[in-house]
Simulated scan of single mutants.
Amino acid sequence: MANKQLELLVKVQLEREEKLQANFVQALQYSRQAEQKYQGLADYRTEYIQQSQQQGSSGLQSRQYNQFVNFIAKLDQALEQQARQVSQAQAVMEQRRQQWLAMQKKRKAMEYLLEQQRQQALTKAARAEQQMQDEVAMQQFVRRQSS
């Protein structure tokens, strides 16, 4: 009976572990997307500065220069915001990874306990069988001796 309950607990733990693994995978994907978005913004900023420098070599009006500076400032703000998102996404991903690993460890411990109980039951059954065989052999020996 205890084995059946433990088997049920292991099954429940496995289902929880699978959900936590799916949550981790989802967080990992989100983190990678956030990193890609950050890298895309950083690349765009670099390209924009290079293009603006090429255009500026022939001279810029003050209005164009102000637009350039303002746009770079907005890109910098967007990069800072995206960097925070990347950091948060990585923190969530790590938290979910730890939850998944903890659940996996718990399930493995339960499986180990279940296996130990199975081995004990097999050992107990083998001893009982051996005792029964010994008793039968003893009875046969006693019968032969008395006849």
Rank of each mutant, 00 (worst) to 15 (best):
Q131F: 09
R45Q: 03
A42Y: 07
Q85K: 12
V25E: 14
Q51T: 09
R127T: 11
A42F: 00
L9P: 00
S87A: 15
S147L: 15
E17R: 12
Q139E: 12
V136F: 06
Q104T: 10
E15P: 05
Q33F: 09
E47P: 01
Q5R: 03
A42I: 07
L60E: 13
K106R: 15
L9N: 10
R107E: 11
N70M: 06
A91N: 05
Y65F: 13
Q133D: 03
Q95R: 14
S57T: 05
Q5K: 00
S87P: 09
K4D: 14
K37V: 04
K106D: 05
Q139T: 02
A34V: 08
L114A: 13
K105Y: 01
Q82G: 09
K11L: 07
Q36T: 12
L79M: 06
Q29T: 14
L28E: 15
L41M: 07
Q55F: 14
R143Q: 15
R143K: 13
M103V: 07
F24G: 00
K124N: 03
R127P: 00
V86E: 00
Q53Y: 06
A42G: 06
K106A: 11
Q21K: 00
L122W: 13
Q120E: 07
R84Y: 06
S87W: 12
A121R: 02
Q139V: 09
Q82E: 06
Y48H: 03
G56T: 04
Q131N: 03
E17G: 13
S87M: 11
Q54V: 06
A102L: 03
Q85M: 13
L75C: 07
V92A: 00
D134E: 09
D76G: 03
Q61S: 14
V86C: 01
Q33D: 04
L28S: 15
A89K: 01
K74Q: 04
N3T: 13
R127F: 11
A102K: 06
A89I: 02
E15T: 11
A27R: 10
A78H: 11
R96N: 06
A2F: 04
A42S: 09
E135S: 02
Q13T: 11
R96W: 01
L28D: 15
Q77C: 02
L60D: 00
Q117H: 00
N70P: 06
K74T: 12
R144G: 03
Q82D: 02
F71E: 08
E15D: 15
Q64M: 10
